[in-house]
């Protein structure tokens, strides 16, 4: 890393702090993702890496390159914005797919189609309809 030889020590300490914080949060998130028991618990863990993990590393990169080139370098923030905007989309789609699959298999751990009015689902199941027809996901959301 000879390009960082004449960086002020204060800047180096700040960059080092942010890069280690971001990588550490990402590691904890992936560790939780590996260790937790059910899929619905596991879906929470990687958000550590996509929220503050990414933000801290992007911040470290911005500070380092701004100090090295003596001008404001902000293009890394595009990655931060992109990850923030896209993560909800992927997690929502994936969560819905998992919910749909579990409902189709009548897994007892997930709520039925209409949680407050469960009687509707129950009465329809009594008619002997296949579970997949009852558990059609609602696709009219935003």
């Amino acid at each position: 890393m000879s390009h960082a030889a004449d960086l002020p020590p204060g800047v180096a300490v700040v960059v080092a702090f942010f890069v280690v914080l971001g990588a550490g949060l990402t590691l904890v998130g992936s560790f939780g993702f590996y260790r937790l028991r059910s899929f619905y618990d596991r879906i929470h863990a990687p958000t550590l890496g996509t929220s503050w993990g990414t933000a801290a590393i992007v911040m470290a990169s911005m500070i380092l390159f701004s100090a090295l080139q003596s001008r404001l370098v902000v293009h890394e923030i595009l990655i931060g914005i992109f990850v923030t905007v896209t993560t909800p989309v992927t997690l929502m789609l994936l969560g819905r797919a998992a919910l749909y699959r579990d409902r189709a298999e009548r897994n007892p751990d997930v709520p039925a189609m209409d949680p407050p009015k469960g009687s509707l689902v129950a009465s329809r199941e009594d008619d002997g309809e296949p579970a997949a027809a009852v558990a059609q996901p609602d696709v009219s959301g935003p």
Partner: peptide
């Protein structure tokens, strides 16, 4: 001085990310 701080931090971050 600042170079060695950064080398240690960046290497540690790379090891952690590889583990992740």
């Amino acid at each position: 001085m600042s170079q060695s701080i950064l080398v240690v931090a960046v290497t540690a971050a790379q090891v952690m990310l590889a583990l992740a």
